[in-house]
Design a binder for these strands. Structure first.
Lengths: 192, 192
DNA sequence: GTCTATACCTGGATAGAC
DNA sequence: GTCTATCCAGGTATAGAC
C-alpha cells in the first residue's frame, strides 16, 4: 500500500478516535511509522489531510449506500440496513460516537472551513434516505422523514457514547423499525 | 462580580462555543481582560477550570429542573418544558450544538478524567425525566422513556447544528409532544 | 521518497515584583 | 490580587542531505 494511503487510513482512524484537533502530526507519523518530515511530502498542511479524509469517507459512504441499494429491492429493507449500523458498529459508537456527527460538530466549534464538506456526508445519507421514502410513496414528506431518521439515530449514538448500554441501542433500533413499519403502512396513525 | 466568577462565566461560554481543547488561557484571559499570570491565582490548571465549569453547569441544571417542577403540577407539562429548550435556545444550538452532548462527546474523545462529570449532567436530565414518567404511571418503562426522549432531543440538536433549519426543529418538537401524549394515554398503540 | 535538523509559534505553567 | 517576565513542551511547518 502506498504511504499516502496509509497516512490517510491512520488519520481517518485517529481523527475519529481522538478528534481532529487533538490528533497531531506526531500521532499520525507514529501510527504509520514514518518520520514527521516525510509527511509533508504527501500533504502540505493538516487541513489538507482533513480534506482528503473527508473525501475518503464520502466515497466510502457512497459505496456503502449503493451496496445497500443493490442488495435489497425493498426500500424498507434498505432503510433497515442503515439502522443496523448502530448495532454492527455498536462498540465503536459507544467509544467514539458517530463518525459523521462528531466530526461535523467538532468542525462547527472550530469554525473550520471544511465543516461544509463534513456536513456533505450527512447530506449523502439524507438524500439517500429521502429517496427510499419517496419510493415508499411518502412523496412530499420524504425529506422530513429522512431528517427524522437521521436525528433519531444520531441521538442514539450520542447517548450510547455517554451511557454505554447495548440494551438501550437494541431497544431503540427495534423501536425505529416498528415506527418505520407503522408509518409507511398507515401514515395517519403513526404521526409526522 | 468577583474575578473568579468572571473567569468561570467566560470559560463556560468559550468551552461551549469553541470547545474545551480549542479554548486557550489567552482566550479566556482576553475575554475577562486580565493577564494570563493572574489567572493562576484563581485556578491552578486548565482541568481545574473545566471541573469548576461542569460544576457550575450542573448546579444551573438542577435549579432549572426544580423550577420546571415547581412551575407545573402536570408531569406532562414539565416534560414539555424540557422539549421547549430546543426552540427557546434554538439559535445557540444551531450554532454550537447542545452544551451537554457536545462537551460529553468531546471529553470522550480526549479520554478526559472529567468525562464522567460531564455525563453527570446528562444523568440529571435522565433521572428527572424518569421521575416524571413514573408520575405518569409508566413505572417500569420510566427510565427507557427518559432515555428515548434524551436521545431524540440530542439528535435534533446535532442535526440542526449541521443543517440550520428552524422549521425542522419545530416539526420535531411537535412530533415529540404528540408522541408523548399518545404514549401516555395509550401505551400499547404508541409503541415502546 | 525518506530522513534529520531545525525554525518558529503557541500552549500550559511558574516565579517574583508590585 | 494583579502584573511582567520567563520556562518548557509540543505543535505545525520548512530546508536540505541522503
Amino acid at each position: 500500500m502506498k504511504t499516502r494511503d496509509q497516512i490517510l487510513e491512520s488519520a481517518d482512524q485517529l481523527f475519529y478516535q481522538q478528534g481532529y484537533e487533538h490528533t497531531s502530526f506526531s500521532d499520525i507519523a507514529k501510527a504509520v511509522r514514518i518520520s514527521r518530515g516525510n509527511f509533508y511530502h504527501h500533504f502540505k498542511t493538516k487541513d489538507e489531510i482533513l480534506h482528503a479524509v473527508i473525501d475518503l469517507r464520502a466515497n466510502n459512504t457512497r459505496a456503502m449506500l449503493e451496496e445497500w441499494e443493490s442488495g435489497h429491492e425493498d426500500p424498507m429493507a434498505r432503510i433497515r440496513c442503515y439502522l443496523q449500523i448502530l448495532l454492527t458498529n455498536g462498540s465503536n459508537i459507544s467509544l467514539y460516537g458517530c463518525p459523521v456527527g462528531t466530526l461535523s460538530s467538532e468542525l462547527a466549534k472550530l469554525d473550520h472551513a471544511s465543516q461544509g464538506d463534513a456536513v456533505g456526508i450527512f447530506t449523502l445519507f439524507r438524500e439517500w434516505l429521502g429517496k427510499q421514502f419517496s419510493l415508499l410513496g411518502c412523496g412530499s414528506d420524504a425529506d422530513a422523514l429522512a431528517m427524522h431518521v437521521l436525528a433519531w439515530s444520531q441521538g442514539v449514538a450520542t447517548l450510547v457514547n455517554a451511557f454505554p448500554d447495548e440494551a438501550f441501542v437494541l431497544r431503540e433500533v427495534n423501536h425505529m423499525c416498528a415506527w418505520l413499519q407503522a408509518r409507511v403502512s398507515d401514515p395517519g396513525k403513526a404521526g409526522l
